[in-house]
Amino acid sequence: MSTKPKVSVYKLSSCAGCQLEFLNLEPVLLDLVGAIEFSYFPMARRRYEPGPYDIGFVEGAVTCGEEIERLKKARQECRVLVALGSCACYGGLPSIKNWTPERVIVSRVYENPALVHSIKAYGIDEYVQVDAYLKGCPVNKDELVEFIKGTLLGIRPRLRPHSVCVECKLNEYECISVIKREPCMGPVTTAGCGALCPSRGKACDGCRGPANDANAESLARTFSEYGLHRSDIVRRFRKFAGLTQEFSRGADAV
């Protein structure tokens, strides 16, 4: 038996893109595997070892009763429970359905709605206590590694709490908002992605959820000045983290 910290990776309602980031860590994956043991990681390993685990990563939003049960079991068997990605943090993309009646949504997608027992999509902290949040759609690899290192050392990992703009400026990307008057969510979105979208000339979509002092109302007013229709502003603030207090203020601002 190895004495390496045991890690588990769970999947709820999600696209598996965040788990995939573990595998995309290829250049450091071997070092990582040297430091930790993936004891439960169905997407990557056929063999499971039973809990308890030292760190559990939960990917995905909770969208049905069965997932609540699995989540509660995960909480019980993990010392540290981490919300992996924006779905687990805030409900993420699945949460865009929350503003339409469940019946309507289900019948839009499934042929036989009677077989589906879905509920409103929530982040995992609606049901269990969460020790850490790794934001992003998908999570950022460097942040993931930073978090694992910090946890192994027993120190607080440095996860940037402020706006995407800071990283955008540090890298000197052209400002999508000021220069192109496009509705960039960067000023109210948590950094940590290295301002990925502005680096490609695209407005930030807000995938990492609200920054620590997000002033979404004010940004919504600016979007409106840029000529964005009210319904588009609402959609921007509800895309990944519409359930959060901060972004719901943005959606309601104009």
Partner: peptide, 25 residues
């Protein structure tokens, strides 16, 4: 104000910094 920090990031006289440890794997 959006508290985004851009104004200070671009200022030529701002001198504040944070110190962090970057630890290898």
């Amino acid at each position: 104000c959006l508290a985004c920090g851009s104004c200070t990031m671009v200022c030529p006289t701002c001198f504040c910094y944070n110190v962090v440890d970057k630890i290898d794997l």
